[in-house]
C-alpha cells in the first residue's frame, strides 16, 4: 500500500520553504563570520614560530575558497579534515539510528497496545531516563562497564591499530569492507562501532519509542478502528494494515529530526570513544582553540541540521493526503 499517496507540489508553499531555508542558512553564516571577527583568539599568533608566516593571514580567513584555513591539529586544510571525518560520523549516526528504529518502534507499539501494564511503565521509565542522562556520562559509564570491567567490546577508536591505514581515506568502512570481501576488517569495524552506536542510539531510542507510543495511542482512538472492529477484523490486521501506516507517516518526520539531533550527541560520544568523526574533530579543536576548525565544523553541522529541519517541514506538508490537497 502506498504511503506517499499524492505529492501535490504547491508552488507557493515550496517557494516559502526555500526562502526560509535561505534566510536561516544566511543567518548562520553571518553569525559565524561575526564570531570570527569579534573573537579575541588570534589564530595567526598561535602559529608563531611557524615558517609559513604569510599563511597566518589566511588562517584568519573563514572562507570556503581557502578551504576554511589550516587546522592547528593536523596542518591540513580544515575542509580536507572535515571531508575525512564526515563518513565516520555518518556511519556512526546511521548505525545508532538503525538501532533506535529497530528497537524503538516495536517497543513503542507494544507499550501502546499494553497501555498501563508493566511493559508500558518500564518503557516510560526508560524514556524518562533517556531524557535526563547526560550523554557523555553514559558513554563513560558504558566504556567503564563494557570495556574495562566486562571486556565485551574492544578499545575506543574506529579500528584496531593494525588497520589504521584503512581509514586514512574518507570511506564508509562497513560497506566498503563488505564489498571488498575484507572480512577481518569488517569484523573489527563492526566490533568497534557497536558500543558507541548503542550509546548514541539510546537517546534517539527514548525519543522514537515515546513518539511511536503516542502516535499509536492516538490512532487507536480514531473512528476507523471501530469500523474495522465492526468488520470483524482481527486486531493484528487492524494494527498492521491501518494503524501502522498512519503512524509511519507521522514517524518519518520524527525519525529525520532525531537523525539530525544525533549530530549534537555524537560530539560527546566521539570524544569519549575516540571515534574519528566530526564531533571528535570539533572537540579537539576546541581544546587547542583552533578557531577556523571550530567555526567551520559549526557551519557544516548546523547546515546539516537546518537542512534536515526543512526537509521535515516539507515532508509534513506533502505526506498527509488531507493536508497536501488543502
Amino acid at each position: 500500500m502506498q504511503l506517499i499517496t499524492s505529492i501535490s507540489l504547491n508552488y507557493k508553499q515550496c517557494v516559502n520553504l526555500f526562502i526560509r531555508f535561505g534566510i536561516t542558512s544566511a543567518t548562520l553564516v553571518l553569525l559565524v563570520v561575526f564570531l570570527s571577527k569579534i573573537s579575541p583568539i588570534d589564530s595567526g599568533l598561535s602559529r608563531v614560530g611557524d615558517q609559513f608566516s604569510d599563511i597566518s593571514y589566511q588562517a584568519k580567513n573563514v572562507s570556503l575558497k581557502h578551504g576554511f584555513g589550516f587546522s592547528l591539529l593536523t596542518n591540513n586544510l580544515v575542509l580536507q579534515d572535515i571531508k575525512l571525518a564526515m563518513p565516520a560520523t555518518f556511519e556512526l549516526a546511521t548505525a545508532a539510528m538503525l538501532f533506535a528504529i529497530l528497537i524503538g518502534v516495536p517497543l513503542g507499539i507494544l507499550a501502546a497496545v499494553n497501555k498501563d501494564k508493566l511493559l508500558d511503565h518500564i518503557l516510560r521509565m526508560l524514556c524518562l531516563l533517556g531524557n535526563s542522562v547526560s550523554i557523555f556520562w553514559l558513554s563513560l559509564m558504558a566504556m567503564l562497564l563494557f570495556y574495562a570491567k566486562l571486556q565485551l567490546f574492544p578499545a575506543p577508536g574506529r579500528v584496531d591499530i593494525a588497520f589504521l591505514d584503512e581509514i586514512a581515506q574518507p570511506r564508509f568502512l562497513l560497506i566498503s569492507s563488505i564489498l571488498d570481501g575484507n572480512w577481518p576488517l569488517f569484523k573489527d569495524a563492526l566490533a568497534h562501532i557497536m558500543l558507541p552506536a548503542l550509546v548514541l542510539g539510546y537517546y534517539s531510542l527514548a525519543n522514537i519509542s515515546r513518539m511511536t507510543r503516542l502516535f499509536v495511542l492516538q490512532e487507536l482512538q480514531q473512528e476507523y478502528v471501530i469500523t474495522c472492529k465492526l468488520k470483524g477484523m482481527p486486531f493484528n490486521q487492524i494494527l498492521r494494515r491501518h494503524i501502522l501506516p498512519n503512524t509511519a507517516i507521522k514517524l518519518i518526520t520524527v525519525i529525520l529530526l532525531s537523525y539530525a539531533s544525533l549530530l549534537e550527541g555524537s560530539t560527546f560520544v566521539e570524544n569519549i570513544f575516540m571515534w574519528p568523526g566530526i564531533g571528535l574533530y570539533l572537540t579537539q579543536s576546541i581544546m587547542v582553540n583552533d578557531l577556523n576548525a571550530i567555526l567551520a565544523c559549526t557551519i557544516v553541522i548546523a547546515l546539516i541540521f537546518i537542512t534536515a529541519n526543512f526537509i521535515c517541514d516539507a515532508l509534513y506538508k506533502f505526506l498527509d493526503p488531507r493536508v497536501a490537497n488543502v
Binding site: 534566510i23 549530530l263 570539533l282 571550530i294 548546523a302
Partner: peptide
C-alpha cells in the same frame, strides 16, 4: 523570521561555537 531561524539552529553546537570564540 528570527524565531524560525533560531528554532532551526542546533542549540549545543552554536553554544559551543559561541563560548569557544568569545
Amino acid at each position: 523570521r528570527m524565531i524560525d531561524v533560531f528554532l532551526a539552529l542546533p542549540k549545543l553546537i552554536i553554544a559551543m561555537a559561541l563560548v569557544a570564540s568569545v
